[in-house]
Computed example of a mutant assay.
Amino acid sequence: MEKKSIADLKQLFVSGDISDEYVTNLKSDERKGVQALIKSFESKKRREQELEEKFINMCYYEKKCYQNGCNYIAGIDEAGRGPLAGPVVAAAVILPRDFKLLGLDDSKQLNEATRNKFYDIIKNESVSYGISIISNQQIDQLNIFESTKLAMRDCLNQLDPKPEHVLIDAVHLDELPCTYEAITKGDQKSITIAAASILAKVTRDRLMKDIHNKFPAYDFASNMGYGTKHHMEMLDLHGVTPYHRRSFAPIRDIVK
């Protein structure tokens, strides 16, 4: 086999225009640069295989539904149940049967850039999606659990076509017009719930960044309303904002 320059080989690896047989033959090339390219290539292939396997495993619930005759399967998840400030957001999504997005996972396991990229892909390729935002004032009136369920029902009602089965991350919703499953850690086990988790989290994070611009001292763009040390110090120094959940401790104690 004629030896190519390392620059030419690198271009082949980058373009993907290279066969496994060619890579096997390259292993006899003792140049360190060539061996480094092979190592990187094989590492990338292993990672892709892991992502393929994970995606297949996360299709388990969807595949079971399709086998039972369902065509439209919705996933629902929420973001923002725990923070001291800001809304709770829920999202519902129906993905096409042939949807594939390697790396799709619970939104909390992905970095911001990947979440934003996947957010656009999911919105553009979904059959239908819905997003519901429940304000901190509504949370104070209803409590966080009822607010979460309200948001989930609302985003589900936005879907068109209507789902025949719903997969929900952990929360039980009674009296739905179709069958459903509440799956513990569902955003790690179902691609549809994972997709919903990304829509919910990206939406809420962007809202918290908008709130940060109004009240930068609290650093909502970083803590997303959670009770970090800095956030608590700012509460002691500046008090509560209109976006804090007054029914939550320790906010409740501050506004007494």
Rank of each mutant, 00 (worst) to 15 (best):
T203K: 00
V88L: 11
C70H: 15
Y129P: 05
I6A: 05
E21P: 03
S19H: 02
A217V: 02
I251N: 05
L37D: 11
D120K: 14
F118S: 12
I122W: 03
K123C: 06
F248N: 12
D29W: 06
S190D: 07
N124T: 10
E164R: 14
Y22I: 10
G227F: 11
R245Q: 07
A194T: 14
A79P: 09
I121Y: 08
S107D: 06
I139P: 12
M232A: 08
Y61R: 01
T148I: 12
L237H: 04
I94E: 00
I76F: 04
K3T: 10
D154R: 01
E42K: 15
K100E: 12
D174T: 10
G82K: 10
P242W: 02
Q137G: 01
K108D: 07
Y22Q: 10
K64W: 01
L156H: 01
G239K: 07
E164C: 03
Y180V: 00
V23H: 02
L167I: 00
L37V: 07
R206V: 07
Y129R: 02
A79D: 02
S247R: 08
S19T: 15
A79K: 01
K64G: 00
G227Y: 08
E125Q: 15
I191T: 09
N25K: 15
S40V: 09
Q137S: 09
K63R: 14
E62L: 13
I193S: 10
A170I: 06
P163D: 02
A36E: 10
P161F: 11
E175G: 05
L26F: 13
D154S: 13
D160K: 15
I198T: 08
F248L: 03
